[in-house]
């Protein structure tokens, strides 16, 4: 997208890395073990190009999606996607108990809401802190569906031509659990986000 410079993307990556660090800290307190969450890169993708292939969602199984609606200087729909298998594995690790997948499934809905909520809040709150604005949010929703269905819904609800995409790697150190989550942010106004980024970068631009 033309509006976004490399410096903008670099700033967003740094913002979300800080969010990931906060999320990892919260999760490690729950798990009692080191949790690593990293954000390798941030992409801006044309909404029309959002599909399971461009997002590397090649698993055909069911996906879980935690979504939250954020409002503030711009409105944003944030969505966190993961395969249901991985989700159950992460939850069972977090619960630290030996449970069958069927038993775990009883807790899936709520636990995934919590896991997603921790990551989404951490990412969005670090954005709000660093760019210096205030965000409000709805409580998280959780849906289970195929990747196509979830993405279709996202595109349908979004009026914006561009979506911010982050691939997030999550690992619980000692238990050797690793997962890849996809974080999608579709905002009512990327222009407003760019404006805030410019304000943030403004003070340091001349040094550049």
């Amino acid at each position: 997208m033309r509006q976004f410079s490399e410096l903008h993307l670099d700033a967003l990556t740094e913002i979300f890395s800080i969010g990931a660090g906060r999320a990892a800290l919260s999760l490690s307190e729950i798990v009692g073990d080191e949790v690593r969450i990293s954000v390798p890169s941030v992409q801006i993708i044309n909404a029309e190009d959002i599909n399971p292939v461009t997002l590397s969602l090649t698993d055909t199984g069911r996906f879980g999606a935690v979504s939250q609606h954020f409002s503030g200087p711009f409105n944003a729909e944030a969505l966190l996607l993961f395969t249901e298998d991985q989700a159950l594995k992460i939850i069972s690790d977090m619960m630290g108990s030996q449970m069958s997948n069927e038993e775990l499934a009883e807790f899936e809905h709520e636990a995934m809401c919590e896991l997603g909520n921790i990551i989404l809040n951490a990412c969005l709150s670090s954005m709000a802190d660093i760019l210096n604005f205030v965000l409000e949010s709805s409580l998280p929703d959780y849906t289970v569906a195929s990747a196509e269905e979830i993405l279709h819904r996202l595109k349908k609800d979004s009026s914006q031509p561009y979506v911010l995409v982050l691939h997030i790697d999550l690992a619980i150190e000692k238990r050797h659990t690793a997962g890849n989550l996809v974080f999608l942010l579709s905002t009512s106004s990327l222009t407003n986000l760019v404006t805030h980024l410019d304000q943030f970068l403004g003070n340091i631009h001349e040094q550049n």
Binding site: A20, R22, E34, R36, E173
Partner: peptide, 8 residues
């Protein structure tokens, strides 16, 4: 300098 401030 890190965003990750876990105990380890």
């Amino acid at each position: 300098f890190s965003a990750n401030i876990q105990e380890t």
